[in-house]
């Protein structure tokens, strides 16, 4: 998890904050899944971050070891256990705003998720995998938009999910006015860039580069198991 893993390093708090902004939604989703109502979940999330930034929670979960995903969930569980009840939570962390988070959006997203029988932990992992994909996808989209190629992104993004065949390359090529060969290259580049971005995203949340593959495989398993 690179810079965020070294409390003494410069920019530690910024890096940690960026990560938390990217991945707070799975925490909220976990709390909701555990039965908290939306106000409780909101307060716990904010309180948890407030504590996290004071580095009190880091004593028991060393982020340089293992995955940020597991660390964050374990830390959250500890935090919730320590808080014991909602009243105490509001006394301590309640009302504090460690990060400007949009809980309205969180609640909307949560409502869109599958309402099946996932355990809170499984639900957390699934949300986490989605968050990683969404982060990477947003960056990819932004990169294409910046290069003035938003239309290519829109037309080719479907091939991130389905392996294109000869005919679909021809169709896509015709739609954006390029040759089938060029479309193939464009699709290939899009997929490769997306893959790189997701891996970069995941690399921030593990302590060693070698763990990226492991984490990717784990999240893939989570996504296929949960549906």
């Amino acid at each position: 998890m690179l810079r965020a893993g070294e409390p003494g390093a410069t920019g530690y708090r910024e890096a940690l904050e960026a990560l938390c902004r990217a991945y707070w939604l799975p925490l909220y989703a976990y709390l909701r899944r555990r039965g908290c109502n939306c106000h409780q979940a909101e307060d716990y999330t904010q309180g948890f971050f407030a504590r996290l930034f004071e580095r009190q929670a880091l004593v028991r979960a060393d982020p340089t070891r293992g995955k940020f995903r597991s660390f964050l969930l374990a830390a959250l569980k500890n935090f919730v256990a320590d808080e014991r009840d909602y009243a105490q939570a509001s006394k301590r962390g309640g009302g504090a705003r460690a990060l400007p988070l949009d809980f309205g959006e969180a609640e909307a997203r949560y409502a869109l998720a599958p309402s099946d029988t996932l355990s809170p932990e499984e639900f957390f992992d699934r949300s986490w995998a989605l968050a990683a994909l969404q982060q990477a996808m947003a960056k990819l989209k932004a990169e294409y938009a910046e290069a003035g190629k938003e239309h290519l992104f829109e037309r080719f993004k479907g091939s991130l999910q389905v392996d294109a065949n000869v005919a679909s390359y021809r169709d896509m090529a015709a739609d954006v006015g390029m040759s089938a060969g060029a479309a193939r290259v464009a699709v290939h580049r899009l997929r490769r860039r997306f893959r790189d971005l997701v891996r970069q995203e995941i690399a921030q949340t593990v302590s060693e580069p070698a763990e990226v593959d492991e984490e990717v495989n784990y999240l893939f398993a989570v996504l296929t198991a949960s549906v």
Binding site: L112, P114, L133, G158, L160, Q161, R195, V198, V216, F220
Partner: peptide, 26 residues
């Protein structure tokens, strides 16, 4: 999902199947 036949929920990024996307990464 036309590829893996998994149900597609509304929270999918860009409306694409998360499992398929992660498969590409993996």
């Amino acid at each position: 999902c036309p590829e893996c036949n998994a149900p597609l929920y509304q929270d999918a990024p860009e409306d694409l199947c998360p499992a398929c996307l992660m498969r590409i990464v993996a």
